[in-house]
């Protein structure tokens, strides 16, 4: 059976989280998190795909092909907004933290630990 897109989504997730786990820079952290986020888009979109399908816009469907599932596309859009919202906040935090400590390295002795 063909599950390649799902496995690619899994790969994106793990690679993105690897970036988060090994990060030495807050900007890199946000980028890695976004890579991980994109795995969600891919998983949802490939779940709803139909072989030979077209976009779910009915005046443009070719004869003999079926439109793909529109629901997962709507869900994906919501998830993209989530990603944008979270990124904006994390970047804002990183920028202010940079002004405090002069470094973007999250490994510097954090004030909250132990």
């Amino acid at each position: 059976m063909n599950m390649l897109p799902f496995l690619v989504a899994l790969w994106l997730l793990l690679v993105g989280l690897y970036g988060v786990s090994a990060t030495k820079n807050s900007i890199h952290l946000v980028s890695s998190l976004f890579v991980a986020q994109s795995s969600g888009y891919l998983l949802l979109l490939s779940l709803g795909y139909l072989k030979g399908g077209t976009a779910p816009i009915l005046d443009q469907v070719r004869v003999g092909s079926r439109p793909v599932d529109p629901v997962v596309q709507a869900l994906t859009m919501t998830d993209i907004v989530v990603g944008a919202a979270v990124s904006a906040l994390i970047l804002a935090c990183a920028l202010q933290a940079f002004k405090k400590s002069g470094t973007l390295d999250p490994r510097r002795t954090p004030p909250m630990r132990g």
Partner: peptide, 26 residues
Amino acid sequence: FGAYCGAYGPLVLESMQGMRHAQQGV
């Protein structure tokens, strides 16, 4: 992959033309 057969999408695509005069599923 490519053989999805859930009920949600088709129900939306079938009903939206008649009930909402809409053509863009998403």
